[in-house]
């Protein structure tokens, strides 16, 4: 009899403890979404079909989107997501386009008419200018998302490949002929 009472008391105690924890140690937001978002390259380019990196992260967390839909992240990004989520890595989805070398947007300042459309399109405020004045790209802020390219009415924005410099060069992996 005493044993039963004791067990009941323990149950009640643990129940209260759990209830208390659920209220007081509640985690705000979904930590998985945060983690996935941290892995994504934050170009906010929308190539995945979602309006930005965070919505894509939310979709992955809910299981509504596959992990191979981010071309700027590339194969490395897919690998990192696979590792995070404990699933198999897979090649990039052909539907979203392939991996491209890093590029920055450059405005041909002779042609720019100052329409501000690109400024409105840029997700990270990397384009400087105002109405009827020439615009220019702040190279250090540009993520290379290409969102400014289609909106330009005079086609004066081009994506230029980032050239390798002495500072950015890194040792290549040795050419391996091993099995």
């Amino acid at each position: 009899m005493l044993g039963i009472l004791l067990v009941c008391a323990l149950f009640a105690l643990f129940g209260l403890l759990l209830g208390y924890s659920a209220i007081h140690f509640r985690v705000e937001g979904d930590p998985l979404v945060e983690k996935i978002d941290a892995v994504l390259p934050q170009t906010q380019c929308g190539q995945c079909g979602f309006p930005g990196c965070r919505p894509y992260a939310e979709a992955i967390a809910k299981g509504e989107a596959d992990i191979n839909r981010c071309p700027p992240g590339g194969e490395d990004g897919v690998k990192a997501l696979a590792e995070l989520l404990g699933v198999e890595a897979k090649p990039l989805d052909d539907a979203v386009g392939g991996e491209k070398p890093k590029a920055l947007a450059v405005i041909d300042e002779q042609k720019c008419i100052g329409c501000t459309l690109c400024i409105q399109a840029c997700p990270v405020d990397a384009i400087l200018g105002s109405a009827k004045h020439m615009h220019t790209v702040i190279a250090s802020e540009c993520t290379g998302c290409e969102l400014c390219v289609p909106v330009c009415p005079v086609d004066c924005i081009a994506m230029e490949r980032v050239a390798e410099t002495l500072a950015s060069w890194k040792w290549p992996q040795p050419r391996s002929v091993l099995p």
């Binding site: 390259p41 934050q42 906010q44 930005g52 990196c53 490395d76 997700p123 990270v124 990397a126 802020e141």
Partner: peptide, 18 residues
């Protein structure tokens, strides 16, 4: 990778601010 991560974090800040 560390440099890229820094750039991504910076871009996220700017995107969120926008």
């Amino acid at each position: 990778k560390q440099r890229e991560q820094q750039k991504a974090d910076h871009a996220r800040l700017r995107f969120e601010a926008r």
